[in-house]
Amino acid sequence: MALVLDNLSKRFGGVVASENVNITVPKGKITGLIGPNGAGKTTIVNMITGMLAVSGGTIRVDDTDITRAPADQICRAGLARTFQNIRILPENSVLDNILIGFHRHERCSTLSALLGLPASRRETAAMRARAEALLERFGMRHLAEYPAGGLSYGHQRRVEMMRALASEPEYILLDEPIAGMNDVESDALAVLFRDLADSGIGILLIEHNLRFVTRLCEHIYVLDGGRLIAEGAPEAVLSDPAVLTAYVGGEHA
């Protein structure tokens, strides 16, 4: 049971953004994906979630091929993500931002939604209760009614995470979830991510903060120039000369 990328490739015109990438994200574990800026990490998340067309290779979730499935079906297959460049619904309140995450679990018929029948109202109320539970868990209960567009980046990132979790995914792809957060905030999230994995969710964690990745992941992949240059346990990978070169080179570029 895993999310498996098999020889995944992506070209933008002449630019090779990823080439023959093989990654496995098992359930119940946190898998790290690191690499210097422009290595192609976000591109991979975009391909998995159906935001970008795949140039070559396949993507499978628990043996279902989702390589060419449209984005909304991929969500219904149990995948959720957060965005590196934050994408919230700025006009809506925090609570409404999370409510939309429950979309895939809403069952009431279109007709009862249209007519405002009790079934639709009950469902909305139930989703609100679940959204409030999530807010509690992320310590943002008091911000429920605020327009999401006015929150700090740290809070907006957490809104994205709650929204993704609301869809109750089997796998969640986190693209730099702690960027711009302080140590206290990121420590709290580390605990949360651990809990999620322990509850059986597969997590793909993209982060530039290597300490954070090392602490949480048992297995990490290193990407550079669209190719995997190393994978394995964090300590082994981070002492790999190829990785050091990529990072040192990357930082000076």
Binding site: R87, L89, D96, L99, I100, H103, L114, G116, E123
Partner: peptide, 26 residues
């Protein structure tokens, strides 16, 4: 009724950000 239902929420999401809406299964 539409505003208060899942349809209204889906409409709002699509209007504000199609990528977000699609990534949440809308």
């Amino acid at each position: 009724a539409i505003t208060r239902s899942r349809l209204g929420r889906a409409f709002d999401a699509i209007r504000q950000n199609e990528a977000v809406a699609a990534s949440l299964g809308v």
